[in-house]
Amino acid sequence: MLTSILKRTAVTAVALAGLTTAAFAQLELKIMAPAAPGGGWDGTARSMQQALTASGVAKSVQVSNVPGAGGTIGLAQLATSNKGDGSTLMVNGFVMVGAILLNKSPVTLAQTTPIARLTAEALVVVVPANSPVKDAKDLADRVKADPAKVTWAGGSAGGADHILAALFAGTVGADASKINYIPFSGGGEALAAMLGGRVTAGVSGYGEFEGQIKAGKLRVIGVTSSARLANAPDAPTFKEQGVNLEVLNWRSVVAPPGITAEQRKTLGDAIEKMAKSKEWAEILKARGWDDAYLGSADFETFLKGEEVRVEKVMREVGLVK
């Protein structure tokens, strides 16, 4: 008896979460997460679903998953099957820019309709606490002296971490094509390699290393934001150390190609309303994401800049021929 009540409570809690909507909203949206359930983009999509319905911006939001190939499979589907569909959005981000080049995707982000940039996370370069490398200059000297000897641990090849390592080498005047970057599957493995002293430096989103940094097991060489992070005032930026390096791992939403200007405005307004709602602010806080809202037009310009930059780096590293 108790069990069945419990089960029902849990079940209704799950079922109701997406349904508490304000009565007046009429918008019905579909959000595609171009990743498997449980991943980062899926988390963004489901959080948006929650914020859009809870704040009353949309009447209903359905999340679907089209996983595979750094999101490019979902991208292809958005550009073909959803063409001209003004009620569908897709979550994407910085990583997709690289994945498109790497996977030689026939569809690019230029074919989508940018709607908004939502969040951004600064990356961080760390070394084990007992490492002789002290700061960005130290690391730069070593990379310049012998790039092979400086091993970098981070996420997948061609992802944000890899691009940062290459940008760092390029910025300090070393040969970016010679960096010794070792991709690990999942943050845990890269972190273990760092703590075990197997690699020289590690790259990841700040949040992933935060616990170890605060525990004193890892030392921050630099963060990639323009100013010091609010939650880590002791961690120096690269900029202040004279390395002109700024990389943000951002997440955004885009709409299919071929929608009307009016549809674009409706979607843009809805997402703007969501991004400024208190429900979204709560989610950002709970998930540890930084608000990086950019409206449709600004985001479009920003996106073009990122595409150029990433392509240049990937050519230098030899990931794209």
Binding site: G186, E189, L191
Partner: peptide, 12 residues
């Protein structure tokens, strides 16, 4: 002990 997620479930 370390905050190392070493499986999909642990990461979540």
């Amino acid at each position: 002990t370390l905050g190392l997620p070493t499986s999909a479930t642990a990461a979540i």
